[in-house]
Nucleic acid binder design. Structure first.
Length: 355
DNA sequence: TTTCTAACCTAATCAGAAA
DNA sequence: TTTCTGATTAGGTTAGAAA
């Protein structure tokens, strides 16, 4: 049951000609738990979240991305099936999109764009001319040769095939299109290591490992309080996730759905209480020296900290919303907060027997 | 053998730099 | 503004691991 034109595609090709795929990974229970918990509150994780998940699970970021892609598909499919069953087969049901968080809607959601050099382009173009559907071995070889991550090479081939097909179907071909880029010879690593060479995105708020900003509240995610080996397989060594839920009043403002479900299904380890609750300036750990030179706490007019069950809740002043804060305020606060979290994590000693 | 799901695919679209 | 192209999405297919 091939579709017209499918002979041109990988799926229509003789299986014998197809190059081998990547070896399939098998997720363990705690990796799945962590991904599923994260999916519940954010089905569209941005690059910062995906990288944090990669760290915490030991799964590479591209595999995390694929897992989310597949999981969304299954989720939407199941959702549709469920709603059609409940309403009746004959009725047309409006599909409910998955909830997108501020992380998705804001800037900094995507990976930094890759800029290929002339030589990188020509290597890829040559490879494409030989084989439009390289398997994992070829892609890894190309990755080694060009210094481009394998996952991006895969994307490059996908885009190239799509555009190649479009053009061969009669669209006018611009001779410059897809030609090796004439930009100066910056390596990928240069772009990645030197932020000044990455195209500016002045409105960006830096991605945070521990923050998600919603319109009216901020959600704080702690991970990695427990040094955790994803492959160790001990149930009590699951990663720690602490999601801070916006208050009910805040939730009610704009979104009919609670934006997040607090994730407390996983073992939760709070940071040492003294760090947050007993100080005059609860937003800054006492050991402020670790927060570089920022010994001045953020003026707490915008934020307050509340203790509630096992959650720490930060709530904006009722009159103030995140959108009222300047970009600089937020950027400063996030950077500062990440540093404090890192200092805290570095300092934290797990209870005996948890390792 | 069947079921589940990671890996991979296309097509459409977004997004940002360059022309 | 338009063009180009890397990144992301939805959703379908393939194929390997587990039941």
């Amino acid at each position: 049951n091939w579709r017209p034109g499918e002979l041109e595609t990988c799926q229509g090709r003789d299986a014998l000609q197809r190059e081998a795929r990547r070896r399939r990974i098998v997720l363990n229970r705690s990796q799945k738990d962590l991904l599923e918990a994260c999916f519940k509150w954010n089905p569209y994780p941005g690059i910062a979240t995906r990288e944090q998940l990669a760290k915490d699970t030991g799964i590479s970021e591209p595999r995390i991305q694929v897992w989310f892609q597949n999981h969304r598909t299954r989720q939407l499919k199941a959702q549709r099936l469920k709603s059609r069953r409940s309403v009746g087969e004959q009725t047309q049901v409006q599909d409910q999109p998955l909830l997108k968080t501020q992380e998705y809607l804001g800037a900094g959601h995507r990976k930094n764009r890759l800029y290929l050099t002339r030589s990188q382009s020509s290597v890829l173009v040559q490879a494409f001319e030989k084989n439009q559907f390289p398997g994992i071995a070829t892609r890894e070889e190309l990755a080694k040769e060009t210094g481009i991550p394998e996952s991006r090479i895969q994307i490059w081939f996908q885009n190239r095939r799509a555009r190649h097909q479009k053009r061969s179907k009669g669209a006018p071909v611009n001779s410059l299109a897809d030609a090796p880029d004439v930009r100066k010879e910056l390596t990928v690593q240069q772009h990645q290591n030197d932020p000044s060479t990455v195209p500016s995105r002045s409105h960006d708020i830096p991605p945070s490992n521990s923050f998600i900003i919603n319109q009216n509240s901020c959600l704080i995610l702690y991970t990695s309080f427990v040094p955790w080996d994803p492959f160790a397989g001990h149930a009590n060594q699951a990663p720690t996730i602490l999601v801070v839920q916006p208050t009910q009043t805040v939730q009610g403002l704009e979104n009919p759905h609670p934006p997040l479900t607090p994730v407390n299904q996983l073992p939760t380890v709070l940071p040492p209480e003294r760090e947050f609750l007993d100080t005059e300036t609860p937003l800054c750990p006492q050991d402020q020296g670790k927060c570089q030179d920022r010994s001045e706490p953020i003026e707490p007019i915008d934020l307050e900290v509340l203790e509630s069950k096992n959650y720490l809740q930060f709530k904006l002043d009722s009159k103030k919303q995140w959108k009222d804060l300047s970009h600089q305020d937020i950027t400063f606060f996030i950077e500062w907060w990440d540093e404090c979290c890192q200092a805290l994590i570095a300092e934290w000693e797990p209870p005996e027997g948890t390792l």
